[in-house]
Design a protein around this nucleic acid. Structure first.
Lengths: 197, 197, 197, 197
DNA sequence: TATGAATGAGTGTTCATTCAT
DNA sequence: CATGAATGAACACTCATTCAT
């Protein structure tokens, strides 16, 4: 954290503060808007000039990318906690997915579309790894079917994190998502029923 | 259908044709864009002037409203068919929801957000009624829990009709939605498991 | 000028008036600025909205192109007059080039750079034709050397129409250009001297 | 060159190096751009911070001024060489003007516009003096008319150094300029023809 | 003194909406 | 009624300039 040129480090602190403010502002805007925010709005909410936003994130891609990385990081950390604390695999799975919905992972989805899938590789790998351990744990308990994959969890998490976009307030969105997720998890851990023809 | 003033009838036919063209154009644009289309694009696709669009749909609300009504009508009709043909309540429920996903009911969601919930009352009632009969049928079979409501079905249908917006092609979107919906329906018809704390 | 649909023709009159105003405004701005004008300035000077400018000239290219065509048209017409009225070939040549400087043909040059050379083909051909007749006439008089080409006249006209860009007022610019042009024409019609090594 | 405070001297050497780098960078940018460069581009090419540029040249004027002085200095030196080596006044005149075109004196013109004419007095005087000696020499040979002034040479040099701005590559620009300049010089040294009415 | 992050005014461009024809 | 030209507010982006480090 410390190198020989003190002045440079001080500068960086300033920039990091701006970046953090911009990131938080972007996330808030995305959650409020339910879509891609305007640059002006992000800068205004962050309390910095529009030029500062452009210095840190020269195009929309880089801003959205940073937002995704930020939210993924938090989600992965939450998943690790769940893994180390949950009594059973099912508990862990439930804990993780509900946690993701709570964490506002939905932000990821809003920005997902515009991003090249090749981005944020380390987060992607870390998430994949964590999910595999989650599923292994649940399988060892005999709780979930062999057909369930990490991708299933991943995509379902994305689905239940997305806003329904029918004008609901955030609280209602959350409540509905959790209720629907409970049914989904019931299905995941139940005897498989008849499938679609 | 016929009155004494021929000219007026001709006008009306013209207007209806314009309206139909605008509606179809709006739906196509929404499906292509995955979001709210520009007025110019809708008018251009419909092959009418922008002024004509504004005459028929003075504001965004009225256009989106008309689109929702149009799509809902088709969905309800599909639900009625399922109701009259399915052997069991569960079959009917599965048939309806998978059908909705296939039917691209997703269009409704895209436009849902901007609409006041008080709109399209007759379609809403009709849909509500149909869903109630669907649920009653399933309950009589003992297939679903008492806690499941028509609103659950409604909101879940919306959820599984939404695009994940992670850059998937439509075919993949559909496949994932159906797979996830199967798990959800399993959960709906299974013994309720542990819920979120 | 008249077709079966009156309404359309009336519309076009409006559009033509706007286009004319925009063209004149663009030329004035270019002459004042000595460079590419801002869209806002052109629209403001023309007394129309910025959107109107974009409707008529969706990009800078099309506006500059239209300006070039407009100015070229006037220059060619002036050249034709000179051709039909001048007593000798040298008079015609002098008359044409001084006339071009007076006419503010310089506008052409400012915008020349950004244009694909393939543009405005008919004006180009007409100008070429007129210049050839001008040169033939001067050659028949024995006034100019065989080495002088239409391209020489063309490029020299451009040169002497360009502003010196040293902060002179338009009147001084014109005076200097005419004075320098006189020397150049003297050289064109004189015995060729020693050339650059 | 040496005073008691070594540190200050070191600073000064640093500053001079920065100034030289900035000047060279500005000239390069102007030659590449064909117009006024952005400050960022100049600083980047010079390899210094934007703040350093502003320290040395607080406003555009001072930067452009320094560029002009720099280029004029070189041109005057070239003129002196021509004066001392040319056999005749006409040769000297031709040599000087063609040399200026070759030297890229055009840079001066690009920046001329924004400068108050009162700037760079010593260079101006030196140039004036040199041109006067050039003209005197040519007059003594009987080669040029009494009407030709130092200002004529000055302004004509500027004219033939300016890019035509019609998308030509630098080589073609140079060739055309030299060719046109030859005709101009022919005119300057010929019997005056009929002038513009 | 050198650096480069922050600022914000200015310009380019789109698009919803109005209105004359 | 249909048409599409005109309008201008909103948003995207650049770049000259200041100032904290």
């Amino acid at each position: 954290m410390v190198d020989e040129r003190g002045a440079v480090l001080v500068k960086r602190a300033d920039a990091q503060r701006s970046q953090r403010k911009l990131l938080d502002a972007a996330i808030e805007e995305i959650l409020i808007l339910g879509g891609e925010p305007t640059r002006d709005a992000v800068a205004r909410r962050a309390g910095v000039g529009i030029g500062t936003l452009y210095r840190h994130f020269p195009d929309l891609q880089s801003l959205l990318h940073a937002v995704v990385v930020d939210v993924l990081d938090r989600t992965i950390r939450a998943g690790e906690v769940v893994l180390s604390e949950a009594a059973t695999g099912v508990d862990a799975l439930r804990g993780y997915m509900h946690g993701a919905v709570d964490a506002g992972l939905g932000v990821v989805n809003v920005v997902h579309a515009s991003l090249d899938s090749a981005g944020w590789p380390s987060q992607r790998a870390a998430a994949q790894d964590m999910l595999n351990r989650l599923i292994d744990m649940a399988r060892r308990d005999g709780a979930i079917d062999d057909g369930v994959t990490a991708t299933d969890i991943s995509l379902a998490t994305i689905r239940f994190c997305r806003p329904l976009a029918i004008g609901l307030d955030p609280a209602a969105e959350q409540e509905i998502a959790h209720r629907q997720l409970d049914y989904f998890l019931d299905g995941l851990t139940a005897e498989p029923g008849p499938k679609r023809p």
